[in-house]
């Protein structure tokens, strides 16, 4: 397997007034293509910040983040936005669907950033919604769906562009146990069958248990497990 994520000496410091807050301290980490990694740690340990770095949402204070061969720390904001649209799928704790758009239109959103014909777009959306088991909910708005169904739409949106990496920030944090299990099953399936590399931040040891690798962050320092 090849290395898809390579992090070298990554540090992140926030400045609040005169105070300096070092959230990540000299992180070194490699993730192989096709891995399912769980990032755990107490609140404020820096796991979401690390996830944001991997997803290209935030830039490091020092160090290098190389993902799919691109060094993110060298990119400007609009290059990062373009890179994200091609390489990263997002799953959020609160689903982050657009309430005014139907399930179909929500899944369609990231495809607007790629040059595709209407027919190709339609094919991809239907396929993604089929994969998450919601072919009959395409015209439903988020408020007409249960939490678990909304998260499945969000997963369909994350995979529809066929990204290399899926980042998931507490994907089961807002769900009941049964729905959480369904979501984790889907993630495991996409990891196995579609070969997606998944980085998941979670508090839940049960959820983390479904990943191949668990890494713990504590006070900005990484401890492998």
């Amino acid at each position: 397997m090849s290395t898809i994520i390579n992090i070298e000496n990554l540090s992140k410091t926030y400045h609040r007034d005169a105070e300096e807050l070092q959230v990540l301290k000299s992180i070194n980490m490699q993730v192989e293509n096709g891995e399912f990694l769980a990032l755990m740690g107490p609140s404020g340990s820096g796991k979401s910040t690390l996830l944001n770095m991997i997803a290209g949402l935030d830039t490091p204070t020092s160090g290098k983040v190389t993902i799919c061969g691109s060094e993110l720390s060298q990119m400007n904001e609009s290059q990062l936005a373009g890179w994200r649209s091609q390489h990263v799928g997002f799953i959020f704790q609160f689903y982050n669907l657009m309430p005014v758009l139907t399930a179909y239109e929500n899944v369609e959103l990231p495809l607007h950033l790629i040059n595709l014909s209407k027919e190709e777009r339609d094919k991809k959306i239907r396929l993604a919604l089929n994969l998450v088991g919601l072919p009959d909910r395409m015209d439903h708005y988020p408020n007409q769906l249960s939490g678990g169904q909304q998260q499945r739409v969000a997963i369909a949106r994350a995979i529809v562009t066929d990204p290399s990496i899926i980042v998931a920030d507490e994907p089961t944090g807002d769900l009941d146990r049964k729905s959480a299990e369904e979501i984790l099953n889907l993630m495991v399936r996409f990891n196995k069958e579609l070969g997606k590399t998944i980085i998941m931040v979670t508090h839940d040891p049960h959820a983390a248990g479904r990943a191949h690798i668990k890494k713990h962050l504590d006070k900005g320092t990484l401890n492998g497990a």
């Binding site: 609009s78 373009g82 994200r84 649209s85 959103l109 990231p110 950033l113």
Partner: peptide, 14 residues
Amino acid sequence: TREIGTLQALGFSR
């Protein structure tokens, strides 16, 4: 605000 953040995360430019 969160919708805007999500759109940015998905790759929509400023």
